[in-house]
């Protein structure tokens, strides 16, 4: 491969400089949140402008944890996100596989129907959904958060696109060998879908960890609250404790950041292979 002719791979190229500047702009709000989290309330918004905390302190975190059982909230969020992720990923893979590799009448219609659910604004169907969930007796249990959103269209779409690229010959071969439908899925399709699974795991975990409006309505018992709900509390009617709020907000993003950082390569690869077209 010929060496690139413009710019270089080093740090002084225009490209690199632009990217780094852009990155700084992207990071600045988060940086400012970090500064806030370690400041005390008094010096924060008045007095001369300082871009770093004058007397860094962990007080805000102590206050936040003292005000609400955030440790418990983290555990709740993790439990819900993990189980919901496992459920959703399984459902997505199944549906994507069927929609990609099976021929049957109504296939297009089903796919379109599923896609159309992407367009339903959450706030609008919230109340009927709640009535339904309440009728099932699921209020104040994790089921109410996990199940209604377990089937979701975006993941199915990704799976379908990805699996369209699985060579039919391989599936044929397995079928000819006498494998049943589920066995083909399990033994042939899944191992081929690792990058896809990586993408799904990351995205689903992220969506479920970040969910706010629905868990707020459907979980009334404070001991079941998730982290985003806890954050909403820190914005009280009685004045906002910005350092505590920013501190917990940042803390709440750590798990996702960790997950994404860890699986970054697989993620990009998975997106690439889903052949988004």
């Amino acid at each position: 491969m010929t060496t690139p002719r413009t710019g270089g791979a080093g740090w002084l190229s225009w490209r690199a400089v632009a990217l780094v500047l852009g990155a700084l702009v992207m990071l600045f709000p988060l940086y400012w949140m970090l500064v806030t989290a370690f400041s005390d309330t008094g010096t924060l918004t008045s007095g001369p402008l300082r871009l770093w905390p004058q007397h860094p302190t962990l007080e805000a975190f102590r206050r936040a944890f003292g005000l609400l059982p955030f440790g418990r909230f983290f555990v709740n969020s993790a439990a819900i996100a993990l189980v919901a992720m496992a459920l959703s990923v399984t459902l997505n893979l199944l549906a994507g596989y069927v929609l990609a590799k099976y021929r049957f009448r109504g296939r297009q219609a089903v796919f379109v129907l599923i896609l159309s659910t992407l367009m339903i604004p959450v706030q609008v169907v919230m109340v009927p959904q709640f009535q339904l969930v309440a009728g099932l007796g699921w209020v104040d249990s994790y089921w109410s958060v996990i199940v209604p959103r377990a089937a979701e269209a975006f993941g199915i779409f990704l799976c379908r696109q990805f699996m369209l690229g699985i060579p039919d010959e391989v599936l044929e071969a397995a079928r000819i060998d006498g494998a049943g439908h589920l066995r083909v899925f399990w033994s042939v399709v899944l191992p081929m879908s690792r990058p896809l699974i990586a993408v799904l795991v990351i995205l689903t975990f992220m969506y479920r960890w970040n969910e706010f409006a629905w868990p707020l309505i459907v979980l009334n018992d404070q001991s079941l609250f998730t982290v985003p709900i806890g954050l909403a509390f820190l914005q009280g009617q009685y004045g906002t404790d910005y350092p505590a709020l920013m501190g917990m907000a940042l803390l709440s993003t750590l798990p996702i950041v960790a997950v994404f950082a860890f699986f970054q390569r697989q993620f990009v690869e998975g997106v690439a292979r889903s052949g988004l077209r």
Binding site: A79, D140, S141, Y142, N220, L224
Partner: peptide, 18 residues
């Protein structure tokens, strides 16, 4: 987890805020 090891997974009717 589903079998109820975490408190939130057991279906609890009559608990909570109702």
């Amino acid at each position: 987890a589903l079998s109820g090891c975490g408190t939130g997974f057991a279906l609890r009717s009559g608990d909570g805020s109702g």
